[in-house]
Write a protein that binds this DNA or RNA. Sequence first.
DNA 1: GTTTTTCCATAACGGCCGTTACTAAACCAC
DNA 2: GTGGTTTAGTAACGGCCGTTATGGAAAAAC
Lengths: 203, 203
Amino acid sequence: MGRHREFDLEKVLDAVLCVFWRKGYEGTSYADLTEAAGVERPALYSAFGNKEALFRQALARYDERYLGYIPEALQLPTARQVAAHILHKAVDLNTRYPDHPGCLGINGALAGSDEAEPVRRALIDFRAAGQAQLRERFERAKDEGDLPQAAKPDALAAFVMAVTHGIAVQAKAGFSRDMLEAVAEQALSAWPAGSSAPSGASS
Amino acid sequence: MGRHREFDLEKVLDAVLCVFWRKGYEGTSYADLTEAAGVERPALYSAFGNKEALFRQALARYDERYLGYIPEALQLPTARQVAAHILHKAVDLNTRYPDHPGCLGINGALAGSDEAEPVRRALIDFRAAGQAQLRERFERAKDEGDLPQAAKPDALAAFVMAVTHGIAVQAKAGFSRDMLEAVAEQALSAWPAGSSAPSGASS
DNA sequence: GTTTTTCCATAACGGCCGTTACTAAACCAC
DNA sequence: GTGGTTTAGTAACGGCCGTTATGGAAAAAC
């Protein structure tokens, strides 16, 4: 039934993802995308739909390829370890690729024209989902005595996310990995102590 | 000699500033600007120069009109008070105007097309200048014993800025003021204690 | 081998971008 | 009042945007 596709869908999506990561959603043009992917415009349209659909698929791939450390972190025994794991992995992710520093969720769309509002909304929801996972994990920690009864899981989750976002902003500004590690360490130095740690030592 | 300007330069700049604040640099078009300012395009060009020059003047006005709390904070007696003042005022600034939440420095340009790189650079320098002020202030605090000898002023300054940036990102995502206050408080809860506080109680 | 279906690529679409001639109007100096 | 000068507003510029119609090449079906 007809001609075969001549390019690798995943490779193209990876190339597209890197461009979005570096230039944001609105800052990326189809000229950028075709150059990076080695595929002409109509092929991108037929394979992924329009620009917004393409970005959403790139975001999903970003999640599965680069954000695996979050579910990883959520399974650690103590809340502090969860936070530490997320913060340090975020530092690493934000500085690992000099060609596209920072993270897609922050770089992609903070401000921009009205037309891109749905995409910004998608990114906000994306971050909110991660934060909700974190909050639930901290609620469990509170039940387990790993966080003190006075701890506010939603505030702690928001704090960890805020530091993560701040790190992303600074990574995009060119901060060194060491400096970002120091930021993460400082954020952790005030972590509330619970009455009992379920298992393992702190990271 | 010649015709008089029919509009108030400062009012126009304020209107322009609010648009940039809300939509970022690249996301703002001259159609947006003329509508908000009530002034036609050529008038903006003759009064402020091109779009980049206009943005830079808006940024300067943002500094003098909304970031006065930073020099204010730098004069407080203890480093912790400095950090607390900045964090809480940042929360306030980021949530005070529902029409343009977040802060101009973050909203303005995190990612975008290559053409806007000079503007992004200007914003990065802008933030770096603030961070350098903070670092110098913390170095003084270390000399005064207000911060422990082991404290790293540059890391502390980067941390305060990171939390500030994270708060800006979250404000733009619609977080409540209370939640952002909780984030700021959590950031402060780990503040390193010095051997002596020069004067006054902690905020 | 012909037909049919699918994909690739050139090229073009209308629309908005930032920027600027150009013309008319308003003001000062004389 | 007249001339010189600065501003205001209309309208247009070339260029890039995201998107798509179109025609030819390639592979499967018969």
